[in-house]
Design a protein around this nucleic acid. Structure first.
Length: 306
DNA sequence: ACCCAGGCGGGCG
DNA sequence: CGCCCGCATGGG
């Protein structure tokens, strides 16, 4: 039977979070980061409403969507306190991130100036390691629309019930909840050949692997730990490190980045993913992951639809 | 019908 | 190391 998290929230009162640097919420949420896969967006007369769940509770966001914002309203449900909810929102959206040195480093590159201006304020978000790991194991050889559907189904299937007062929703599923599920049950979420990967990673995490511990490790060490798990290769590990651990030097190379980079920096020649990562590391160093996020989202919204 | 998707593991040279 | 293949599933 499902466990149930009791009603406990900010009581309908909206809190305010201020950002030291304007944030482009639309791009931050839609750019293929974990919140792209499990947040719900509604628009109401130019006011955006975004809600998402974590393992602890639910967060609702409200903001003016006409431009990058410096204030964000939010309220919380579930096992959050005023302080922990504030931390969740501030850290998730990097409201204290000083963007100046990042844009300074990226701005030296002529190919990035266009992406910087059209996506100005977009953050590489800092998501929960387990959420990020699950999302990106599912992402492999898949498309964003389907990833959303699979993650949504998994939340509905395996998340604890949460009463928010108005709506019944479910928390983000824990590794334990997923490892308890049969592979047949998991398969019904549409995981396909990824079923065994998801089952294996969930099992490892529920049997002693503490993903939070990887925060202590440097990029290389944390990456090799992640890649020990079946179903996590170079690209997925880099996504997890970038968006789940805040390792801003991580540079995931997927098909979009490969195409885009080959065109912009390699005269359309066929270049290996390894060479692209090495180039990115030289070009953008500790902020390579930011360059990646701007290139990736710019390529997807600008170019060829699919 | 066909091609593709925020790749990975395994097998080969 | 680099290359090539199969892979579940569903959207365009």
């Amino acid at each position: 039977m499902q466990k149930k998290t009791s009603l406990d929230s900010s009581g309908g009162r909206w809190e305010t979070a201020r950002s030291s640097y304007p944030i482009n919420m639309k791009a931050s949420i839609e750019s293929g980061q974990p919140l792209t896969f499990h947040s719900v967006y509604k628009s109401d007369n130019g006011i955006a409403r975004v809600s998402y769940v974590t393992e602890k509770g639910a967060i609702e966001l409200r903001y003016d969507e006409s431009r990058p914002v410096s204030t964000l309203n939010y309220r919380y449900h579930g096992n959050y306190t005023k302080a922990s909810a504030s931390r969740e929102v501030r850290e998730r959206f990097r409201l204290d991130q000083d963007m100046a040195p990042i844009y300074e480093r990226m701005g030296t590159d002529r190919h990035l100036s266009g992406a910087i201006s059209s996506l100005h304020g977009m953050r590489v978000t800092k998501n929960d390691p387990w959420e990020t790991t699950l999302c990106f194991v599912i992402s492999q050889y898949n498309n964003i629309k389907r990833i959303k559907g699979i993650v949504r189904t998994m939340v509905e299937q395996y998340g604890e019930v949460l009463e928010t007062g108005e709506t019944l929703t479910r928390l983000f599923p824990s590794p334990e909840a997923i490892s308890r599920a049969s592979e047949e049950s998991l398969g019904k979420c549409g995981l396909g050949f990824r079923t065994k990967y998801v089952a294996g990673v969930a099992k490892a995490c529920s049997e002693g692997l503490d993903l939070e511990e990887l925060h202590r490790l440097d990029y290389t060490e944390a990456k090799s730990q992640l890649m020990n798990l079946e179903g996590i290769g170079e690209k997925v590990a880099d996504c997890i490190l970038l968006m789940g651990y805040g390792k801003l030097n991580a540079f995931p190379v997927d098909v979009w980045i490969k195409r885009s980079m080959q065109k912009l920096y390699f005269n359309n020649n066929d270049v290996s993913s390894r060479q692209i990562r090495e180039f990115a590391s030289r070009q953008w160093g500790e902020y390579a992951g930011y360059a990646q996020q701007y290139l990736f989202h710019n390529a997807r919204i600008g170019g060829m639809t699919h």
